[in-house]
């Protein structure tokens, strides 16, 4: 038994050594989406505020939620999306933000404020927003791209890329049939499923990350993508354009929040405020590609960004979009099942 303990102790040694780094600067623990902040900006913040930013990333709201809820690690800043913010508020996991410390809030576009998931922005401060839409090659697509119906047009068979995600692909199909992207009626969800199964022979692939390459080589004529990815792809390629279908689409808002158990909330507020400085926000856009709610930042970007239709989403387009709701698990079960049937179908 003693031997086992000894071995355990030896195995744990590196962990203990790693824990005591000799650095007395204040530490800010940030938990953000992967590839969602220019690392140069974080380094700049560390320098200006003489602190150390401990930066970790996640790939989905759910991953973040599970980790924050169940792990003993504490974070000072999180960047959840709309529906997840709603859930975190409901479960009393967030701290009220002292808006006196967020002086740059005056720079924020009012369309990104006061949204239903956090009325009055008591708990969350906008970071980026974006919409789901269609990126298409103007050399290959001759018809006007203004509706999800174009994804069902057999003229473009094997040149259509769909988005490999349950809520997004189901949402496209629901929206095309005139239903809400947050549909809870089983018959309507199944109608959307059947439409996706009928569409499958026309689809080249369901992807999330290879869009840029396939669009650039003209292997694909159009793809369902989020505006931030689209804006980066368009910025390298003049023959590509982005459209938000007339039926409406999904819009998301990713906001900064401070969890209740944050160790360093004052520094967290400084960090949030810093990110909303126009110069910093503009620099961040060039890295991330999504639309920034910091109005003065847009003017600081060069002309190609100003003309980029996936970056400058019009107010009308945005108004047609729905925000995803946190659906109850029995409804999500129906979505999962429908999507699996689409996946299995030939």
């Amino acid at each position: 038994m003693k031997k086992i303990l000894l071995i355990l102790a030896v195995l744990c040694l590196p962990l203990m050594l790693g824990g005591c780094a000799s650095d007395d600067r204040a530490v800010l623990n940030v938990y953000n989406w992967g590839d969602y902040m220019d690392p140069a900006i974080i380094a700049q913040f560390e320098k200006e505020y003489n602190c150390r930013v401990n930066y970790e990333t996640y790939t989905s709201n759910e991953d973040m939620y599970v980790k924050v809820k169940n792990s003993s690690d504490t974070y000072d800043v999180l960047v959840p999306s709309d529906y997840m913010i709603e859930r975190l508020i409901k479960e009393d996991m967030l701290r009220l933000i002292n808006k006196e410390n967020i002086t740059n809030l005056a720079n924020i576009d009012s369309t990104a404020l006061n949204l239903p998931f956090d009325p009055g922005n008591q708990y969350s401060i906008p970071y980026f927003y974006g919409v789901l839409g269609i990126i298409y090659n103007t050399d290959l697509v001759t018809d006007p791209v203004d509706s999800w119906n174009i994804l069902w047009n057999d003229k473009y068979a094997s040149k259509i890329l769909m988005y490999d995600s349950i809520r997004d692909s189901m949402g496209v199909s629901l929206s095309r049939l005139g239903f809400s992207m947050n549909e809870t009626n089983e018959a309507n969800i199944n109608a959307a499923r059947d439409a996706l199964i009928a569409q499958k022979p026309l689809v080249m692939a369901y992807v999330t990350d290879n869009v840029k390459n396939l669009m650039a080589t003209k292997d694909a004529a159009m793809a369902v993508v989020y505006s931030g990815d689209a804006s980066i792809i368009i910025s390298d390629n003049d023959s590509l354009a982005f459209a938000v279908p007339k039926e409406g689409s999904n819009a998301f808002y990713d906001n900064f929040v401070i969890p209740k158990n944050a160790q360093n909330p004052e520094l967290a507020e400084k960090f949030i405020n810093y990110m909303l400085t126009p110069e910093v926000a503009a620099k961040n856009v060039e890295y991330v590609g999504y639309s920034t709610p910091v109005t003065q930042a847009v003017g600081l970007l060069d002309e190609s960004w100003q003309k980029n239709s996936a970056f400058n989403i019009s107010k009308e387009d945005l108004a047609r979009c729905e925000i995803f709701k946190d659906l109850p698990s029995d409804i999500l079960e129906i979505y999962n099942r429908a999507w699996t049937e689409v996946n299995v179908s030939k």
């Binding site: 989905s60 759910e62 349950i166 080249m204 692939a205 369901y206 992807v207 079960e333 999962n336 996946n343």
Partner: peptide
């Protein structure tokens, strides 16, 4: 290589863990 069109049992398991959260 299948572009998500030819789902296999491994994909179903992956999906249950990573996206369906079941």
């Amino acid at each position: 290589l299948g572009g998500g069109k030819y789902m296999l049992i491994g994909n179903l398991i992956e999906q249950q863990f990573l996206t369906a959260n079941n």
